[in-house]
């Protein structure tokens, strides 16, 4: 019986999870294209620019992403043999890129020209949601930087 429940969960996880991932990636790529005009760098100082800086202000973005049952299942098999856990890699990648896009969105709303001194932080917040001892792993990606606007 428990095995059956697990099989159902894994199947749901596989179909719903891979569909969600595909649509999410499509939307990430779409939005990343829109932000090519907003340079984002982790340099401390912007490149030489003759224009005067009007303001500089902190911007941030975050996203919490969880794995699905299928990924958890694949990862637990992976744990036996070792090697690349590509099932988890994509989850972390999506969280970071989503958080970066949110930060860029915030910067664009304020009218920024570029973002400098980008910092990315990842924290694991999973493990033990209410009612279950071993909650599925979920991670938070937090991205922050300084948005800069030049006087025009």
């Amino acid at each position: 019986m428990e095995l059956l429940i697990l099989a159902i969960m894994v199947t749901i996880g596989y179909f719903a999870g891979s569909h969600a991932e595909k649509t999410h990636y499509a939307s990430i790529i779409e939005r990343e294209k829109a932000f090519t005009k907003l340079p984002t760098t982790n340099l401390k100082h912007p490149p030489q620019d003759p224009r005067e800086v009007e303001w500089a202000q902190l911007v941030n973005g975050n996203a919490v992403m969880a794995v699905d049952y299928f990924k958890l299942f694949v990862a637990s098999l992976r744990n036996m043999f070792g090697g690349r856990m590509s099932a988890y890699e994509s989850v972390i990648d999506r969280a970071r890129r989503e958080a970066t896009l949110r930060m860029q969105e915030m910067a664009r709303k304020q009218g920024a020209d570029m973002i400098i001194n980008l910092r990315i932080e990842t924290a694991s917040i999973g493990g033990g949601t209410a009612g279950q001892k071993n909650g599925l792993p979920s991670i938070e990606a937090m991205v922050y930087g300084t948005a800069v606007r030049y006087r025009r």
Partner: peptide
Amino acid sequence: VGRDLMASLKNIVGGELKGYTELLQEAR
């Protein structure tokens, strides 16, 4: 608890846990 319940449901299919994203943003 409410957010946690939603999060544990969401955990079956994976993806973003909006409740936690907001919670952490508010905390920050």
